[in-house]
């Protein structure tokens, strides 16, 4: 077991404590590493399945990233495929489809930031003013529900409601109005996916804000009210500052994930609206990598996205620190 070779715990004391399983683990005696290994072998054994699965399905693919620098041929394998240097990346950067996907990704990210991001905050503020606990619990139950739907299900529901044969257009036709099919219109696709995201995830998104709201001391409100602050001033001077930390954290996460706008959502609807508006970076690697068998090209696109994403997360954290907040990790 490779995990047994730890750098830690090489202190040489404690041969007398060997085998003291009952108190050794949180006792102060520092045990010899062999003793600790023998004592904890069952615990180590328990972690083996998870470690093996992660090594195979998460760490091995990391090494598989070398295919981005190759002309990978599945018939000869990674080891014997011809090296390409940066040729795949050159091809990528000369591909108008790639720039189209990048543009779509950034545009969708912006639209989601503007239209999606404030919704859970507003909803949480609204819900927080509902006094009846039963009503509050009921509303929470309802708005959390779509989070557990698959994208296939959510999009099918949207299709049935707003699609060409859906309820909305049926109603429009019945009343002699022009049909309006948002589900196949590439020009309004950003609005469509954002409204789907709001429908499915905004309710779930309120959890963190509700927790933050519950943590704000009632005494603050009471003191402010005694000083004559009305409900809007209380919201501005107490509630919003109380939410500031969570809002900044969520904003940092959103900015750090600016290149991740959803995957299955686009995969499912690409046929309906066409690739010009539905291709984002994640689906780009799928369609131009796996579906065409051009694995190295797709891997290069994926690697590009991962590297930029890591930079974005790092940058967003710097930004959070500049605001005096913790962000994803502390300074």
């Amino acid at each position: 077991m490779s995990t047994a070779r730890s750098e830690r715990g090489k202190s040489t004391t404690g041969e007398d404590a060997a085998g003291r399983r009952t108190t050794g683990r949180n006792g102060t005696v520092r045990l010899n590493w062999r003793t600790r290994l023998r004592r904890d072998r069952t615990l180590l054994l328990m972690t083996v399945p998870a470690v093996v699965l992660l090594l195979v399905f998460n760490y091995a693919p990391l090494f598989g990233l070398v295919t981005a620098f190759q002309y990978y041929d599945p018939l000869v394998g990674v080891r014997d495929s011809e090296w390409a240097g940066l040729a795949q990346f050159q091809q990528l950067f000369h591909d108008p489809l790639f720039w189209g996907a990048l543009k779509n990704t950034l545009w969708l990210s912006l639209v989601q930031l503007v239209l999606f991001f404030p919704v859970p905050i507003a909803l949480a503020l609204l819900l927080n003013t509902v006094l009846s606990e039963r009503l509050r619990n009921f509303i929470q139950s309802v708005v959390y529900l779509p989070h557990f739907f698959s994208w296939v299900l959510a999009i099918t529901i949207f299709q049935q409601m707003l699609g060409g044969a859906g309820i909305l257009n049926h109603f429009l036709r019945q009343n002699d109005m022009a049909p309006w099919d948002i589900t196949t219109n590439p020009h309004t696709f950003a609005l469509l996916v954002t409204s789907q995201a709001i429908w499915k995830e905004a309710g779930w998104g309120i959890i963190v804000f509700l927790a933050a709201l519950a943590a704000i001391s009632t005494e603050l409100y009471e003191a402010a009210a005694a000083d004559g602050a009305g409900r809007w001033r209380r919201m501005w001077h107490i509630t919003l500052p109380g939410l500031r930390g969570v809002i900044v954290l969520m904003l940092v996460l959103r900015l750090g994930n600016a290149l991740t706008v959803g995957f299955e959502q686009f995969l499912i609807q690409r046929e309906a609206v066409g690739h010009e508006s539905a291709d984002v970076l994640d689906t780009f690697s799928f369609y131009y990598g796996i579906a065409t068998g051009n694995y190295s090209f797709g891997a290069a696109a994926g690697l590009f996205k991962s590297v930029i994403s890591l930079l974005l997360i790092w940058g967003a954290n710097k930004l959070a620190h500049a605001f005096g907040e913790d962000g994803l990790y502390r300074r």
Binding site: F57, G64, P74, S285, F286, G289, I290, Y295, S306
Partner: peptide, 9 residues
């Protein structure tokens, strides 16, 4: 590793 390396593994 991303989509494609995982697929290849």
């Amino acid at each position: 590793g991303g989509l494609i390396p995982t697929f290849l593994v």
